[in-house]
Design a protein around this nucleic acid. Structure first.
Length: 537
RNA sequence: GCGCCCAUAGCUCAGUUGGAUAGAGCAACGGAUUUCUAAUCCGUAGGCCACAGGUUCGAAUCCUGUUGGGCGUACCA
């Protein structure tokens, strides 16, 4: 890639001026030329010289076959202009390399866990955001050279599960308590599950065995439902890990032993505390409660122990917005197990669904939450994906469902899809089945063509930067920009013409654009459209 | 009280390892079309980047303080 080559050339020029290693990515796409660098400003303090002077020295010494012009502007910004031949070569690489920009494997393994909703109810709105985000992030990390596993953790043990079992059994037991369990599950689906069990096993007595029976059968029912929802939303996992298996596997004892060994356990008020306060946390945390049961942290730590033992270098957890206070104690725990492991806990922020500016209440059938099933009925999933993924995950979203429907035409996802479909449509019209792969470099004297190839070149760097910063919204923003340039080119330059050479040049260029748009959409798990259908809205 | 996140155009939001004139879409106004699908393009208007200091050659971006909002602060999960 010519950006890489330029970086190399620049570094080698600089190395003659100073031994100081400036290994930062200093090349940026610029509105003053093709690309620019602020390196002279960064070197100024080191070389004790003005940026303008340093820029002049660099220019004097700099050589690259790809660069036709280099100049210093505004006190020392270096501005490079590529030769048309270099741009042509880049386009050919985009066309010939089926994985343009994809990095070779770096040997690092990433575990990315997301959603992990309790198996006590259907998936809801915020799970969709975490799900889309997890899928995208996983694709991005793969592109950037990591080996990734997407993981779903099933919390099928603990208090909530007992409560879940009781809530079900309550409906099909003769001798249950007078009162429905406090904090029990009240969704209508609970009754459905109860009816199913009743049809299988008849009425059941109220005892622990039957509570367990109900929770087991209930979990099975819910997981099936959740998996169906995930499938409909295009969210896939490589691993499903069950808390019950973690509990059986001995990792809990090993966690306790390890913490004890490190002197990080303390008994107080009949409970056992993990001394997390000195690590990342601001206070110590209970791991075994005074009644002898575990708090959530202990099995979850054991689970992370298990992940670490499976050999991951980086562990990413995408959690819901109510887990804010949990991050530091988890980091403390992971750090205690193995301080070399990089753990990144991300929070997918709250989504408020609105309808005409008012908080949207869906049917009360499942309680107060908006389920995947209800979402699917109300909105196109690809639209939802794009809108969710265009926001940075730290930003809460107010999402007006009516507006998304009503403004379908102006929805950013359609803007991008239309660019893709437009290219397909032109190719169709021109009867092109294969890329002509012939391009005269003179096409890059057309400003819009130049903008397009430069934007295409940026694609891999957008993805690499997301792999570092997790700012997933950049993909959608980038695609919108690329689509905008395509629309502009299309509008100003007729593609189909009697001049076969000219036509082939443009088709070759657009072939590249289509490929990048398609790659970007696929990264987001959105299917590129080959034609736009009229939506009845 | 303490901790974390946030505050950018009328609205929804982009814009951070500090960079050159702060952007897009919607909404408003004006133009382009009997098209390679106008689901598009071009233009006008709209900003004290919450406020006040500081660091720097340079700040929406970093630091401190203030104001306003969200979340967390369980022997819940």
């Amino acid at each position: 890639m010519i950006i890489e080559k330029l970086e190399q050339a620049l570094l080698s020029t600089i190395s003659k001026l100073t031994s100081e290693n400036k290994s930062k990515q200093n090349i940026t796409f610029s509105r003053f030329s093709d690309v620019s660098s602020n390196i002279s400003f960064l070197l100024a303090p080191v070389l004790k010289n003005s940026p303008a002077n340093i820029a002049d020295k660099i220019i004097k010494d700099f050589h690259s076959d790809d660069i036709t012009n280099i100049k210093s502007l505004n006190g020392g910004f270096l501005n490079f202009t590529f030769t048309e031949n270099a741009l042509k070569n880049e386009l050919m690489e985009i066309l010939s390399n089926s994985n343009y920009g994809k990095k070779t494997a770096n040997g690092k393994r990433v575990n990315i866990e997301f959603i992990s909703a309790n198996p006590t109810g259907p998936l809801v709105l915020v799970n969709a955001r975490a799900g889309f985000t997890g899928m995208l992030l996983s694709n991005i990390m793969q592109f950037a050279g990591y080996e990734t596993d997407k993981e779903y953790y099933v919390n099928d043990s603990g208090n909530q599960i007992g409560m879940f079992g009781m809530s079900i059994l309550y409906h099909i037991s003769n001798n249950c308590p007078d009162e429905f369990p406090e904090n029990g599950y009240r969704g209508l689906y609970i009754k459905d599950i109860a009816e199913t069990i009743k049809s299988e096993s008849g009425t059941l007595d109220w005892n622990n065995e039957n509570i367990k029976k109900c929770s087991d059968r209930g979990i099975e029912y819910i997981l099936k439902w959740q998996k169906k929802s995930l499938n409909e939303f295009g969210i896939e996992f490589d691993n499903w890990t069950y808390e019950s298996n973690i509990r059986k596997s001995g990792f809990i004892d090993r966690t306790i032993d390890l913490f004890k060994e490190k002197g990080l356990l303390e008994e107080k008020d009949n409970a056992v505390f993990f001394r997390s306060s000195g690590i990342y946390d601001d206070k110590d945390r209970v791991i075994i409660k005074s009644d002898g049961t575990y708090s959530y942290l202990l099995p979850d730590t054991a689970y992370h122990f298990n992940k670490i033992e499976r050999g991951y270098d980086i562990i990413i957890d995408i959690l819901g917005p109510d887990h804010h206070g949990y991050i530091n104690r988890l980091r403390s725990a992971v750090h205690t197990i193995n301080e070399k492991i990089e753990i990144r806990v991300l929070i997918a922020q709250l989504i408020t669904l609105l309808k005409n500016g008012e908080k949207f209440e869906m049917s009360k059938r499942q309680g107060d939450f908006i389920t995947f099933d209800e979402l699917k009925e109300n909105i196109d999933i690809d639209v939802l994906k794009f809108i969710f993924l265009m926001r940075k995950m730290s930003q809460p979203i107010n999402f007006d469902i009516e507006e998304a429907k009503k403004q379908t035409m102006d929805n950013p996802v359609y803007y991008v899809q239309y660019a893709h479909a437009r290219i397909c449509s032109v190719f169709d019209k021109a009867g092109v089945k294969k890329c002509p792969n012939s391009i005269d470099e003179k096409i890059f004297t057309i400003p819009e063509a130049r903008e397009l190839i430069l934007k295409m070149m940026e694609y891999p760097y957008i993805i690499y930067s997301i792999a570092q910063t997790f700012e997933i919204q950049k993909v959608g923003v980038y695609l919108t920009e690329l689509a905008g340039l395509l629309h502009k080119f299309y509008h100003n330059h007729r593609i189909i013409s009697d001049n076969v050479d000219d036509m082939n040049n443009k088709i070759t260029l657009l072939w590249g654009v289509r490929k990048i748009i398609s790659n970007g959409l696929k990264m987001m798990n959105i299917k590129p459209k080959t034609r736009m259908e009229n939506n009845e809205v």
